[in-house]
Amino acid sequence: MPTLTAQSVRGFLFLFCLLTLLPAASPAAPASDSPRMTPVVRAVKSVAPAVVNITSTHIIEGQRVSPLERFFGPGFSPGFPGFEGFPGARPGRQKRVSLGSGVIVDGQKGLVLTNAHVIAGSDEVMVHLLDGREFSATVKGAEPDFDIAVLEIKGARDLPTVRLGDSADIMPGETVIAIGNPFGFNHTVTTGVVSALGRTIRNDSGVFTDLIQTDAAINPGNSGGPLLDIEGVLIGINTAVDARAEGIGFAIPINKARRVMADLMGQGRV
């Protein structure tokens, strides 16, 4: 039976450390002519960097309750020495955070299109990019009647940008792609078709007309994200789902969103 020498042990340890420290080989990407590189895959690869996750924080002024009051009930105060001054309910601040999506439509100016309800009542807006960068954003304008808002990313230029399409030639039945952050799952991709055009829906905020209906899955957090055609061109801004049924979502046509954005940036209102 061969014996291990000190030299052979050192050699083995050196080889083991070398293999451990070497970076793992990244999987090779499919060739450009691979059948796996479908139009949907190409569109997502092109547009995903321009899709952002939006975190909207709203500060709520209210009453903060002492731990003893939470347990024993409002107004409780221990009646023994040492607790005469135990604090009860007193002014406090709470944060309410909501999540949504958006898409960069002007990389030079750092402009983002999203829904007005995504940033409604916000005191602080943060934009998170696919590459991990985070930026503070200001609301340049919002129009609840059209559910469109424009954000400006602070301190960021030369950002990835989506191509704006023409929603006038959308065809029922054509393939569409939705990208967003449903339930906080960043850059989730769903596909479907244009189910119908010119839809009207009513909710607590009012009546919205001339919407694109799609069966591409749109869930909470998708609001404000892009609806793309098969070429990766922006044709709509996802805005609502019908909770009574599956496969019924709605998007604002990009032609309408573009007009609202121009008015907000030029005049401050529609």
Rank of each mutant, 00 (worst) to 15 (best):
N115P: 04
R133I: 10
S98L: 03
R133H: 10
G132Q: 01
E143D: 15
R96W: 10
G132F: 10
K140G: 10
V103T: 11
N115W: 08
V97Q: 13
S136T: 14
V127Y: 02
M126F: 09
E134L: 02
R96L: 14
V127P: 00
L111K: 08
V125Q: 05
I119N: 06
S122G: 10
V105H: 08
P144H: 14
Q108C: 12
P144C: 14
G132L: 03
P144G: 14
D131I: 05
K140T: 10
G132K: 02
E134D: 15
L129W: 04
S122V: 05
H117V: 08
V139A: 04
D123Y: 10
A120G: 05
V112P: 02
D123L: 00
V105Y: 06
S122Y: 05
K109A: 15
D131V: 11
I119S: 05
I104Q: 09
D131K: 07
G107M: 05
L129A: 14
G132W: 09
S101L: 03
R133S: 12
T138Q: 10
H117M: 07
S136K: 12
F135L: 05
V125D: 06
S122W: 00
R96M: 14
I119V: 13
A120D: 15
D145G: 13
F135W: 04
S136F: 08
V139R: 01
S122C: 04
G110L: 01
L111P: 05
V118Q: 02
S101N: 11
L99S: 07
E124N: 12
H117K: 04
S101C: 06
K109C: 09
E134V: 15
G102C: 09
N115V: 07
V97M: 03
L113T: 07
H128A: 12
S136A: 15
L113Y: 10
T114C: 06
L113G: 11
G102T: 13
G121H: 08
I119Y: 08
G110M: 01
H128C: 01
